[in-house]
């Protein structure tokens, strides 16, 4: 174990712990733009620099291991001034569009600029906008809003294992792109959206049917994905009784990862084809009915069949897409009321 002092607080951590994590262990939050616990530290944004007594330079807390006896200041004037200057540099290259940006309120850059008092005045925001890359069906890429934190690149490489995108060009011309630069849809991207999930600004944004901002969100509801059997945990973001976005949950077994279906495949919920009324076939066509009528009819026919032909005339298909509770009740009806074990489902398919 290593002992050090952070902002006057004594901290004890295991060898190899970064200053960032050491600070976190005593509830000192150091701001970051490029850090993600799941990824190898990259040290790109430099926002997390802290003052370590005895060192001339500010040390990036995400990549610098805590060492015995370190005395660290995470909020000194020198640190704050450097952070502000770095943010000003980023901001200067960023479109001054917070008023109309869908990310406003959830944007890490915006939040940090607020925290460190960066003002739009005095800087010259970009005048000529690069056209949005809308080629992918599920998300957009806005090169101008990209701050090159590289999280998308690293998520794609380290977590998703696709390496569909990377940095191209260098220096001030650096940008995120892919071979031949014809648009994201023409890369090897599998549209998992795990990059979109981690983007700190509005550079990568999910395509949404309607505009909304964070304060329009009525609620976020934690649930389990309805597609494959991995059971990824996610938050449904709700506005006006509609899912407007899906966020991957960090604390599920999926650790913040989803696939294209889980992340972007929710619009069937509001599809116009949804069944909204019980339907009864009459003369070869369906007509709408009330629940009472439909349930009475089904219960009546089932009783009839049972009385007439007995248990063996019944069968039910349970569902691998319904809940445990749904399935339990169905098998209970089949077994308890019709006294048959003729129940199965498509587990084999």
């Amino acid at each position: 174990m290593i002992k050090l002092t952070i902002d006057g607080i004594g901290v004890e951590v295991e060898k190899g712990t970064s200053i960032l994590d050491a600070a976190k262990s005593v509830a000192i939050n150091i701001p970051t733009l490029c850090h993600d616990d799941r990824l190898k530290p990259s040290g790109a944004c430099r926002i997390c620099g802290v003052e370590v007594e005895g060192s001339d330079e500010l040390q990036a807390s995400c990549t610098t291991p805590a060492r015995e006896g370190m005395v660290i200041h995470t909020r000194s004037d020198r640190v704050a001034a450097a952070r502000k200057q770095l943010l000003e540099l980023i901001w200067e290259d960023h479109p001054n569009e917070c008023l109309s940006c869908q990310k406003a309120g959830e944007c890490t850059l915006q939040d940090l600029c607020y925290d460190y008092g960066v003002e739009a005045e005095g800087f010259a925001p970009l005048k000529v906008r690069t056209p949005l890359d809308t080629s992918n069906p599920f998300y957009t890429f806005d090169k101008d809003k990209c701050i090159l934190c590289g999280k998308c690149v690293r998520v794609c490489e380290e977590l998703q294992g696709e390496s569909a995108i990377h940095f191209v060009q260098r220096g001030h011309e650096t940008m995120i792109s892919h071979p031949f630069e014809k648009g994201m849809a023409f890369s090897t991207c599998v549209s998992c959206g795990n990059c979109v999930q981690v983007c700190p600004t509005a550079a990568l944004m999910p395509k949404t049917e309607e505009k909304f901002r964070v304060w329009d969100i009525e609620k976020k509801v934690r649930t389990t994905c309805s597609y494959c059997g991995v059971g990824c945990q996610l938050d449904l973001v709700i506005k006006d009784n509609k899912v407007v976005r899906v966020d991957a949950a960090r604390d599920g077994e999926n650790e913040g990862m989803l696939c294209v279906k889980g992340k972007f495949g929710y619009s069937f919920l509001n599809h116009k084809d949804r069944l909204t009324m019980p339907l009864i076939r009459e003369g070869g066509v369906f007509r709408e009915a009330s629940w009472d009528e439909a349930l009475d009819l089904v219960a009546g026919r089932m009783t009839e069949v049972y009385d007439h032909s007995g248990s063996d005339a019944f069968a039910a298909f349970a569902s691998a897409r319904c809940t445990n509770e749904d399935n339990y009740v169905l098998q209970k009806m089949m077994r308890g009321i019709f006294k048959t074990n003729n129940i199965d489902h498509c587990a084999r398919l």
Binding site: Y227, S319, Q331, D344
Partner: peptide, 22 residues
């Protein structure tokens, strides 16, 4: 075995099979 559908495990667990109760 990797189960294909969201609740294929649960529907098997909860008696959605002809030879077993939940």
């Amino acid at each position: 075995p990797l189960r294909g559908q969201s609740n294929v495990q649960g529907s098997c667990d909860l008696g959605g099979l002809p030879d077993v109760y939940p």
